[in-house]
């Protein structure tokens, strides 16, 4: 379906958030937080990109894209009025209905925050349905942090703590430097009644899941969003196979209890 670029925000030197709306003949398509779209740049190719906007506004499709290859590079250079192809949404999203009534710990690394943002919007909209919300966001450096202004707004909300940490920083950074797991001891939650949503580099998610289970969070209450090379997005081509699962069709969000053993395998 054709979608038209309506706005773009440069988040970091190599990362842009695009706002798309349905083009001629296209209809808005509802999505669930955690799902992704296949975005096509005409003449170049197609990439899987998670949806990072508000699920309550399906006519305003938001994707945050880092320039990593020729297609994503082209997307970060798009100007208003440009047209892209969109098919989707695909995949299983964050199980928000399953975690109602619980404290929620969200841990994002790098561009792991955009797929989690729709879940945060949903929880904030139904704030009373959830307990404490603890968000830990790790990034390479202060200049690689996305959604800076919006995060400042979240920090001011009661019952929500947002911690940021980076891998390295210069002297102008007064925040934390170190692993996201080093910030977990500061997070307040009731482990047996806590769910966790993790998205980011796989090694970061693995260490975080281990730290959470060590603190008493049940394995089946920890959910990870995996990233694999997705091509068809409908579970046919096998590019994104992860053990017995297809990340595009069965994921990208999986319970830690189901995939823990595969995270320890070198070649999956």
């Amino acid at each position: 379906m054709p979608y038209v670029v309506r706005g773009q925000t440069r988040e970091t030197p190599d990362t842009v958030t695009l706002v798309l709306s349905p083009g001629p003949g296209a209809e808005p398509h509802p999505f669930a937080p955690g799902q992704f779209n296949m975005v096509y740049v005409f003449g170049l190719g197609e990439v899987a990109i998670s949806i990072s906007g508000d699920a309550e506004q399906p006519d305003r499709l938001v994707h945050t894209v880092r320039a990593a290859g020729k297609v994503t590079h082209a997307l970060t250079e798009m100007t208003s009025g440009s047209t892209v192809g969109v098919r989707g949404p695909y995949g299983a999203g964050w199980p928000l209905s399953k975690v109602r009534g619980k404290d929620v710990v969200i841990v994002a690394g790098g561009l792991g925050l955009p797929p989690l943002r729709p879940a945060v919007y949903e929880m904030l909209r139904q704030r009373d349905a959830y307990g404490r919300i603890e968000i830990i966001y790790g990034s390479r450096s202060p200049r690689d942090l996305v959604y800076y202004e919006e995060i400042q707004g979240w920090r001011a909300l009661p019952g929500l703590r947002f911690q940021t940490t980076v891998d390295t920083a210069g002297r102008d950074w007064y925040g934390d430097v170190g692993l996201v797991t080093a910030r977990l001891p500061d997070a307040r939650f009731d482990p047996p009644n806590t769910a966790a949503f993790l998205c980011g580099p796989e090694i970061m998610m693995k260490l975080t899941a281990q730290a959470l289970t060590a603190r008493g969070v049940p394995e089946d209450s920890i959910f990870l969003s995996l990233e694999r090379n997705m091509k068809c997005a409908v579970g046919i081509c096998g590019h994104c196979q992860f053990g017995p699962e297809f990340v595009c069709r069965d994921g990208p969000v999986f319970p830690y209890s189901e995939i823990r053993r595969f995270l320890a395998v070198r070649e999956v």
Binding site: G109, G110, G138, S139, R140, D144, D167, T168, L179, G200, P201, I203, M204
Partner: peptide, 8 residues
């Protein structure tokens, strides 16, 4: 983590 540059 810094050597692997996992976020980058």
């Amino acid at each position: 983590f810094q050597l692997l540059d996992v976020h980058g």
